[in-house]
Nucleic acid binder design. Structure first.
Length: 439
RNA sequence: CGGGGCGUGGCGCAGCCUGGUUAGCGCGCGUGUUUUGGGUACACGAGGCCGCCGGUUCGAAUCCGGCCGCCCCGACCA
């Protein structure tokens, strides 16, 4: 994209309503704009980040064997009456009526709907297990939305639902999702820790929250430093496979033997048993939550399949959520400095910004255009008629992993400066070497 | 849902208490000159239903009432 003709409204000053770093930076870098309390429009570069996160989430769900589908945002009230949640859910559920006075709602989650869809077609245990997911907008009418997209009313969520014949199967599905989640967060450059959690309004008795560490997190967390060393992606033959029950068990054990808890589940006695040098305390942001809840919905909604003995069984279910839009804020909370955002390479809106320090200078223009043609969609070309300082400041603010600085000083001899945003390191290199260096 | 606060050009704010000229400042925006590797300087200029409705008054951004919107603290959530 050419910055001169893009809707990337960067701000020099911070809007008054933004209190925490991610919210301030998302507004200042032109990622989002608020349209109502807790509801945001995603502007071009913000939407690129959102899609990049979505892509990684999708890849890991697919790798775990989950099937992507897409359910509607608007749901009929009847389904929720079947589970009993239409009345239980309270004011957080946005209820609407259509022209025929039919009661509808904007879905805050999809257990009822997916159960309905499964019961319409799955009739035999032979069709299980299955995991389905979608990535879709949700609405929860929070009493007090805040912190920008971290706690919005409308938010993008990946929600998955598992169906198994029995408890043992459900546990395997649960572990699969836990593995997929840890891999997902690691790819996003986040250190996430699974912590035992209350199962909340969805019900059930096996539940973990995934917390990432950030000083501005909403809850106090306690954990064993062992979590700082675990690497789920790069461990070669010792790695975990989604389709191997013993791998999953080994993984689950590794995840759950070390101490980790949010303040509401904090167990002082267990904490005292952790060796003092290994104790870590901090603030955390919840970016995912997984639940096993057994037959709560399958029983309430009359979903049965024929078991091996021909008798009807209610499938054992679980649900698994990742706050995709919240992750944008969470990633910024975890990666920024005084000057702005520092995107992990995997989700940056652009791999590099090309800064033309002197538009109109023949050598600068020529080099920039050539680089832009070569890098294409990976690059944001700052072709504005602005002072160098403005371009440096905006590039730092937007947080592109690389900045390709093209100024008259080096351009004459075919050299540009390459700056790495995360470290601040700069090197002068030949123009031709740029694509390889930032690849 | 309890408590607190704020709505004045795109952004950040002053003015309001003590009603009275063309509603002001910084940034941003446009034009020109200048500067040219970290948010340059100067000049000129554009841009405002002072959140909305009603009331008081000769006169309301300012006082009163109602409504709407937004933010913060707490209780709750991906």
């Amino acid at each position: 994209m050419r910055l001169s003709h893009s809707l990337i409204p960067t701000l020099k000053e911070t809007p008054a309503e933004a209190q925490i770093a991610s919210h301030r930076l998302m507004l200042r870098a032109g990622l989002v704009r608020q349209t109502s309390a807790g509801i945001y429009a995603w502007l071009p570069i913000g939407y690129r980040v959102l899609r990049n996160i979505e892509r990684i989430v999708r890849e890991e769900q697919d790798a775990a064997g989950a099937q992507e589908c897409l359910m509607p945002t608007i749901q009929p009230a009847e389904l929720w009456r079947e589970s009993g949640r239409y009345d239980d859910y309270g004011k957080e559920m946005l209820r609407i009526r259509d022209r025929h006075e039919r009661e509808l709602l904007y879905g805050p989650t999809n257990e009822e709907m997916i159960t309905d869809l499964m019961r319409q077609s799955a009739k035999s245990y032979r069709e299980l297990p299955q995991i389905l997911y979608h990535i879709q907008w949700k609405f929860r009418d929070e009493v007090r939305p805040r912190f920008g997209v971290m706690r919005g009313r409308e938010f993008l969520m990946k929600d998955a639902y598992s169906f198994d014949l029995d408890y043992a199967g459900a546990v395997v599905s649960y572990r699969k999702m836990m593995l997929a989640y840890m891999r997902t967060f690691q790819r996003l450059g986040l250190k996430a820790i699974p912590m035992a959690a209350e199962s909340g309004p969805i019900g059930g008795n096996l539940s973990h929250e995934f917390i990432i560490l950030a000083p501005t997190g909403e809850s106090q967390v306690y954990y064993d430093s062992a979590f700082e060393e675990i690497d789920y992606l790069a461990r070669g033959a010792d790695g975990f496979r989604h389709d191997d029950a013993s791998d999953l068990e080994r993984f689950f054990t590794e995840m759950t033997t070390h101490y980790a808890a949010t303040d509401e589940k904090h167990d002082k006695a267990a904490w005292e048993k952790v060796a003092p040098p290994r104790r870590r305390e901090g603030r955390g942001i919840e970016v995912g939550h997984i639940f096993y809840f057994g037959t709560k919905y399958s029983a309430a909604m009359g979903f049965g399949v024929a078991g091996p003995d021909g008798k009807q069984v209610h499938p054992e279910m679980g649900s698994y959520g990742i706050g995709v839009s919240r992750l944008v804020g969470a990633v910024i909370e975890a990666g920024h400095d005084e000057a702005g955002i520092i995107w992990p390479d995997a989700i940056a809106p652009f791999r590099a910004a090309i800064l033309n320090l002197k538009r109109g200078d023949a050598a600068c223009d020529r080099i920039c255009e050539a680089l832009y043609a070569k890098l294409g969609a990976a690059a944001l070309y700052d072709d504005r008629e602005e002072r160098a300082g403005v371009k440096f400041a905006d590039a730092d603010l937007m947080g592109h992993p690389w900045q390709i600085v093209v100024g008259p000083r080096g351009a004459a001899s075919g050299r540009v400066e390459l700056k790495r945003r995360a470290t601040g390191e700069r090197h002068e290199i030949a123009v031709d070497d740029v694509p390889a260096r930032i690849a």
